[in-house]
Design a protein around this nucleic acid. Structure first.
Lengths: 177, 177
DNA sequence: CTCTAATTTCAGTCTAGACAGAAAAGACTG
DNA sequence: CAGTCTTTTCTGTCTAGACTGAAATTAGAG
């Protein structure tokens, strides 16, 4: 870690902490930060040395990041080791993260809500109030995911245009005032 | 827990697991789920009994949920105990959650990024590539937060309208096709 | 002001999950 | 196919932070 530029150290540490706040293992987040800042692909043993954690631990973290789809293996001529590089396009990266979290967490939640609401018809399974509350929650998740799905289809350039329009967009569409 | 409707049990357990995936203490999430489904305000000792955890633990969880601003104390005549109820409007609830997470996690990250970029001008603090990467990341967070800020100002009705417009909205605005 | 109920704090315990290191498996080389 | 390098898997250890129960504090009632 000490041989990294100061700014890189600072960012990697912060990114690790952020990870833990969002349910991502600290080491996984740190590995991601390191690769994100790295111009050249990095082999696992170097990552281990830089971050000061066991090689085996890095192996697991890399696997996890590959499952997310935000890093990939590349090969360097004259070196047998796998090298890893992060996706460089930040917007694309967060699109992938959002999509994965939707798949892993939101969709299962929607399924549970659907099951609950279905079962809540049966006698003794739930009272009317519970049923209504769950219905509201499901509506929220449905609206949110379908809105996100629309947004996800846009290319980055369109998302940027949209963001730049900001307030004006809402007025043009007549959803405001 | 056993005396709750089956559907409520199922939801509370799932919500607890979801919490852990998003960096929220399981018990905190369970308490929230319980209150969310509860028609009447519930006193702390009953929550402890229902969820089967220590009273003191519930005290901490309730404090946390109050800090988030998604539950509040109410008093019931003829009972000295504090009773707690969840916000019932789901959209309002997630608006608060999003705002808090922005304040607690996104804004500190933006500050770190700003610091890093500023420092990266200094000699030996960072190479050009690192600086560029951090700049891209900061741009992303800036665009995302400012877009969210706009959205947050809209009343729920307008957000629903917007979501319903869906694809059409993008075409109307000329950001698509 | 005293007594009791309710809540919070605190110090210690417990445990899920992070981590290390060894061993196994896999892959390339000559 | 033996030898070496690399990666993965596995088992046991360690620790942050979740949790408990007791003690301290606070709030109301008479």
């Amino acid at each position: 870690m000490k041989d990294l530029p100061l700014v890189a150290q600072k960012f990697i540490l912060h990114w690790g902490e952020m990870g833990t706040r969002w349910g991502i293992n600290r080491t996984v987040a740190q590995v991601h930060a390191l690769l994100f800042l790295s111009e050249k692909p990095v082999p696992a043993d170097e990552i281990a040395k830089i971050l000061g954690v066991a090689r085996s631990n890095i192996s697991t973290s890399l696997r996890e990041l590959q499952n997310w789809g935000i890093i990939r293996v590349v090969h360097v001529i004259g070196d047998r080791r796998d090298h890893f590089e992060s996706l460089h396009d930040v917007f694309a990266m967060f699109r992938i993260i959002a999509r994965e979290r939707k798949k892993r967490e939101i969709e299962p939640t929607l399924r549970v809500l659907r099951d609950c609401i279905e079962e809540s018809g049966k006698p003794r399974a739930a009272d009317a109030y519970t049923r209504e509350r769950l219905g509201d929650l499901m509506t929220f998740f449905e609206v949110a995911t379908s809105a996100y799905d629309q947004l996800e289809k846009l290319p980055t350039s369109a998302v940027l245009k949209l963001a730049k329009l900001g307030d004006k967009a809402f007025k043009l569409l007549g959803v405001k005032q």
